[in-house]
Design a protein around this nucleic acid. Structure first.
Lengths: 350, 350
DNA sequence: CTGAAAGCGCTTACAG
DNA sequence: CTGAAAGCGCTTACAG
């Protein structure tokens, strides 16, 4: 345990100047003149003593804690959502901000969330990020309007709070486009039967892509549970579809990687091989599935890291008073979902 | 945006008492006498005004920020490590603490970590958790000795900082025990070839279990890369082992779930079925593999949540001055790795 | 170019 | 039973 914390007074004493001066030089306060000689002396003393300003004291005085809060809704169960935290944290560091985290269990009521937001406010959080999953719109707890705030994963129903979402529709369309360019025309989609925004967005994207290529968007769609077992069932149905290799799909685009995992099993049971006989594409780039499957799965990545980073970046400028960002509330920012090419796609054999 | 923040002075004015009194009643300060009538009046005024104490100001005065910092080493790439954060966060909430997070990229040097710890100290963190992965021992940055601290995932080489680790050896032994009780005697282990503590611990556990059952701990061990492909290769070798069903292993215990994923493929290619012909067990309970495989994989869970919770719990008591916990530094706490039974284990057919 | 002093919003001896 | 006052460690008008 080290001796007493060294404070600004100690530095002032060591350098033979006032605390005012120390504060000015260490903070490079603008419109303030200090001789270079004094500056050097102050910096030297500070370094010698290993002085580090107490952020709590500064925060109290400047009314800015330098902390932003991230309230996540059941992040632990969301695969890869750790990347949201990572993106937010690294962007926070870049802005000299600290990231505090509270996780809200899905079961908790709005009241609990209110009190969790209040906990951030009590600590004078400069801004708050509210990260949800699986929602179209959300009406955020009132407390969120009392401080700069942004949403991840859902738009604000009242259009007041800026938000960011993955552009799943465009991502899905780009998969079809890739397949088409590879020569596929009988492209199937193993859709999810659970009613969440991603279900609709990805299906829409698939249809967009099919129609853009002049292909029938309804012919090869099978809906099933969005788990491995569902992918297995859907793929079985899809590939049975007129067992004739000349009419059956040459590619199966799965709603997510878990379904793709089931698709792999179905293909194997049918005695077919990926990608020679059928190409398979997933969605989510969910580690470790995508890279552990054989052959490694071509899929679409979700911009988790980017959403986290975007959130604190936007928060930072909101905090700096760039109120024009509030206008963003009305229209969510859509971030790219890039295709990650691995080895489950090939040109169709016929 | 709401009107000016209400402060303790506003409450005092509204209740017609001094701020001293307000502070005492709201904090239930011991050894302090206030009439029930006054107390009620104060509480009422506080509630009416929606007063919430400014934690920054309190922290400055009490020299305790009520915040603990979690420094993670490349947590984003560690599957499931999000559960460490979750456990730490929830335990923090229970202790009225806020959890701040900084992630340290694996590539970063010790200097960077020092400065990241310093960032927590500048914010007057009451304690720090240093979570690493894949280390036996670690010599934590000096800064960590300046404040209550605990380690997750590695022991302190100098035995000064308390630490917590998963008891992988006992977990692995319990798998063998389970298999033996089910009637298996030819139990194989697909070991990892990468030199990390988990590699040694799990292999040791396997050997412990085999020897406890009077079985040869060396006969059915194959080493390979700790990925799906390695699991495939190892299982191929293991099951080939005297192709005769009467001498080949009836169960393959894999170093981790990714290898188990490869094992499934090997078994399928061999025309065998799980668990009728061979039982497979994994390790890590890595979502979504374990539950998405067919049949769902019996595996061993890592106590991530528990380690996170243990860390802040221990930190909290260290902060409260329970220095006896420092004695823990010498011997890491080992937490149970429970078996999660799913459907990949059956009694041996012969 | 530099410094004395007020004040951020609390808690806590101390006095009455 | 209650309150006046000091002080936590900074920043920032303001004065010189």
């Amino acid at each position: 345990m080290p001796h007493k914390q060294v404070g600004i007074r100690d530095v002032a004493a060591a350098a033979g100047v006032s605390v005012t001066t120390v504060s000015h030089v260490l903070n490079d306060t603008p419109h303030t003149r200090t001789s270079d000689e004094t500056k050097a002396r102050v910096r030297e003393s500070a370094a010698e003593l290993g002085y580090q300003p107490n952020r709590l004291a500064r925060g109290l005085r400047t009314q800015a804690s330098g902390m932003v809060g991230l309230l996540t809704e059941e992040i632990a169960t969301t695969p890869h959502a750790g990347r949201i935290i990572l993106g937010a944290q690294e962007e926070a560091s870049r802005n000299n901000l600290t990231l505090a985290i509270i996780n809200s269990r899905l079961s908790t009521s709005v009241d609990v969330e209110s009190s969790q937001i209040q906990a951030f406010i009590d600590r004078q959080a400069d801004g708050i990020i509210y990260a949800t999953v699986y929602h179209d719109e959300v009406v955020p707890p009132d407390e969120l309007h009392a401080v700069p705030a942004v949403l991840i994963g859902a738009r604000d129903r009242d259009g007041e709070i800026p938000s960011v979402l993955p552009d799943e529709r465009a991502g899905a369309a780009s998969v079809v486009d890739l397949l088409v360019r590879r020569g596929h025309r009988r492209i199937a989609f193993a859709a999810s039967s659970v009613d969440v925004p991603a279900t609709r967005g990805r299906l829409q994207g698939y249809r967009d892509g099919m129609m853009a290529a002049g292909l029938d968007p309804d012919r090869f769609v099978a809906e099933a549970e969005s788990e491995a077992i569902g992918g297995y069932e859907a793929t079985m149905r899809l590939l049975d579809h007129g067992a004739d290799p000349a009419t059956r799909p040459t590619a199966v685009f799965c709603y997510n990687d878990r379904m793709a995992m089931g698709a792999y099993r179905a293909v194997a049971e049918l005695g077919l091989v990926i990608p020679a006989d059928v190409s398979i594409v997933g969605f989510d780039d969910q580690d470790p599935i995508a890279s552990s499957l054989y052959p490694p799965l071509t899929t679409v990545a979700l911009p988790h890291y980017e959403m986290g980073a975007w959130a604190v970046e936007t928060l930072a400028s909101l905090i700096d008073g760039h109120d024009e960002h509030r206008l963003l509330g009305a229209h969510p920012i859509l971030l790219d979902c890039p295709i990650v090419e691995r080895a489950s796609v090939a040109d169709p054999s016929r």
